[in-house]
Design a protein around this nucleic acid. Structure first.
Lengths: 239, 239
DNA sequence: ATAAAAATGAAAAAATGATGAAATTACTTT
DNA sequence: AAAGTAATTTCATCATTTTTTCATTTTTAT
């Protein structure tokens, strides 16, 4: 099990490396952000886990994370920093960290976190959901259509519309039944005689049309709906 | 995005549920460990993330985790508890938690952690049933003919066609009577003077021909049909 | 050649989904 | 607390697709 440790404080770095070595990890210790990027850019597959300090000479830990995730690397990353403010934790996690641990911490804790990271699936889903010309904006509850000619167009979504669109975008190119949708997004068991789903689909289609997207929700008679994995702009981009 | 929240304190539970709802999560809030296990034992696939308190009536959060992991469920779990000792964190994480968050915490932090966990939850691959050049795509209700020269060709099926083809593909190389089919796919007792089976067989044959497959459904005079276990491409792959 | 069985095309029947408007519910703002 | 607004759901109706029937033609086994 090979770990990339990026930490500029000599004392802590030495302590960590020794401790990890003692627990049978192979550790590459790098003290500079830029140097770390040299290791990561092409050779992140060599590692099973990475540990980043935030403040580093060269590139910061957050910057390393961003670059790594931009390359779609699924390498599990643990942020290990003195920055304990909630905003910092949010920034770190949203930049793609899998765990945020504040200094000082217990060695046993660090080891447990590393074990937890190792267990996790090596797959990494994209942080923000976008498909074709559509992207879902989690922070503003809206859908965004990217139109090369007219620029971006945003439309706010209601809560149900958002949940429905999210479900569709996470299950593109496959038929999803009304019952599946009903049980995922509503708290009802299937076999409820209701057409809420149809009604919400209609509302969602209207919103998507509003921002110039051709209807990506195909109705499959008797089965449900299928969401196109490559939503396109509507032909007549009027309105 | 559906979350199972297991928390017995009414105030915190309400606050969490409301807050998560506001961020477009569908939340099932359960206050008792035993009840939570009822949800999880068979239906953990319904959820994308779970949040466990440690101390609960019924089963503890750690016990829930152990049982869940014993079933090999990969559901991302966040432990949310007041126990802040390093040994507790280690116990929680080593029982299978993916993240350990100590109360009190910032809501923004919790949300960021949930987003981080979501990124690690993989999708399941869609199922297919194949026989010779044919394969039946369950997620899109279509039949797919694999043609080495022209690539794959897909044709969507209606639900009756799909059911019929599935029945044939699961019982290849043996004679199946109309009555058998009738009682399997239609819920009718035999001796119903009806032509439905023949009619659907005709529709199905047409669909298969459409995608370049030689008729694999042989009619056995007086007995029924026999489906070839090695469906072939049609000679003239025109059309 | 003949009678039974199966295939066929067209049309009827049934099932399903879309839709607009109205009713209900939830949420905000006085 | 009340009024007003927005969101969600229901309902009735209409359009579409699938499924079944029916009358006829074709095929099969004797």
């Amino acid at each position: 099990m090979r770990i990339l440790l990026v930490e500029d404080e000599p004392d802590l770095g030495t302590a960590l490396k020794d401790m990890l070595n003692q627990h049978n990890y192979v550790v590459d210790w790098v003290k500079d952000g830029g140097e770390a990027w040299n290791y990561l850019e092409t050779k992140w597959t060599n590692y099973h886990v990475a540990i980043f300090d935030w403040m580093l000479p060269g590139l910061s830990g957050v910057e390393l994370l961003r670059r790594l995730r931009k390359q779609n690397s699924p390498l599990p990353v643990l942020m290990l920093t003195a920055k304990s403010a909630v905003e910092d934790k949010v920034t770190g996690l949203d930049s793609g960290a899998d765990y945020y641990l504040v200094k000082p911490f217990g060695m046993a804790e660090l080891l447990a976190v590393i074990r937890a990271l190792q267990r996790r699936s090596p797959e990494l889903a994209p942080a923000k959901l976008s498909l074709g010309c559509l992207s879902l904006d989690y922070s503003n509850n809206c859908v965004c259509v990217c139109n090369p000619e007219e620029g971006e167009k945003e439309v706010p979504l209601t809560s149900k519309e958002f949940q429905l669109l999210e479900y569709f975008m996470r299950h593109p190119d496959r038929i999803v039944s009304r019952d599946q949708i009903l049980s995922q997004i509503w708290d009802w068991n299937a076999e409820t005689m209701s057409n809420v789903v149809a009604a919400q689909v209609r509302l969602l289609r209207r919103k998507l049309a509003q921002c110039g997207c051709a209807n990506p929700i195909e109705s499959i008679y008797g089965l449900g709906y299928r969401f196109d994995s490559h939503p396109r702009l509507a032909q007549d981009s009027d309105e």
